[in-house]
Amino acid sequence: MSNGNGDGALSGAVIAVAGAGGPAGRATLLRLAEAGATVVGSDNDPERLAEAVDAASYAHGGATVVGDTVDLLDLQSTRDWATRVEKEFGRVDGLVHLVGGWRGSETFTKTVLDDWDLLELLLIRTVQHTSLAFHEALQRSERGRYVLISAAGASRPTAGNAAYSAAKAAAEAWTLAMADFFRKAGGEQGPTSAAAILVVKALVHDAMRAERPNAKFAGFTDVNELAESIAGVWDKPAGEVNGKRLWLTDKP
């Protein structure tokens, strides 16, 4: 999977990955470790996180891959995590936000507002906390990147996905505000750090394919392809990706 370019851009970088225990997190830890980065994953499931960290460590023996159980719904816990990472490794060059969650309904009229309460925490509050906790460290880095994974539904909501799409749209807006912070901090020279949004229709991984062998998963992005695209955000200058939606699926 190595493409040569990303490996240079990420060699020696220190990258924090929020939501590292899921399939996308596992793929991302592997890809970043392969590229020569020091990777610090967090997840609210210690067992799942340990498995993901071990898999990446074993695959790339020389890589530093560690895990930290963090409550991203608590701002102080998230700030403490950012402080620990910078203190231990000297800097932070990236935060990849992979915290997900989905709730939907048959139709718009059957929307359950309890779903919004959950999605607001998972998809918006965690973004608020990681961005506020890490933005100063990322600004101090010469290659700081904040990478949000979003969904096409944020731009074209469907009737049964009102809560999910609205939460994703809010997370995008919050991330774009962070991008404006980086733009202003860069002055006339342009930003040195960037906040970028990778947009997918949905994600697919091998276990899903095994469960539904006849499914087409049309337009879905494989988690390994997503991980490759995440690594690629460091290939480009900050000014090219800051405040940008980078589409991995058809643009609506």
Rank of each mutant, 00 (worst) to 15 (best):
G243I: 02
V66Y: 11
E172R: 04
Y146H: 12
N5L: 07
D114G: 15
G6P: 00
K244L: 05
A63L: 03
F89Q: 04
A196R: 01
R84D: 13
G153A: 04
P252R: 06
M208F: 05
E106D: 14
T249F: 03
L72T: 10
G12E: 06
A56G: 02
V39G: 14
A20P: 04
E51R: 14
A159F: 00
E47L: 10
E106R: 15
W81K: 08
R209G: 07
E188T: 11
A171R: 00
A210L: 13
Y146S: 06
R31S: 07
A202N: 12
M178G: 08
L10C: 04
G186R: 03
Y164S: 13
T38V: 10
K87G: 08
N5V: 10
D74S: 06
K184C: 12
V66T: 14
G6I: 00
A207P: 14
A63Y: 10
R48P: 02
G187L: 02
K216V: 15
T109P: 03
N44S: 13
G12V: 05
D250I: 07
R183D: 05
W247N: 04
S11H: 15
A33N: 00
V112R: 10
G187C: 07
T64S: 09
V204P: 03
H60K: 11
E211Y: 08
D74Q: 01
D180H: 14
R140D: 14
V127T: 12
R143M: 12
G187S: 01
F181Y: 12
R84F: 11
S42E: 13
V233P: 01
G100T: 15
S2K: 02
T38Y: 00
A152D: 13
F181R: 04
G8E: 11
E120D: 13
V40T: 07
A63M: 09
L118E: 09
T38M: 03
A169F: 06
A33T: 01
E47W: 11
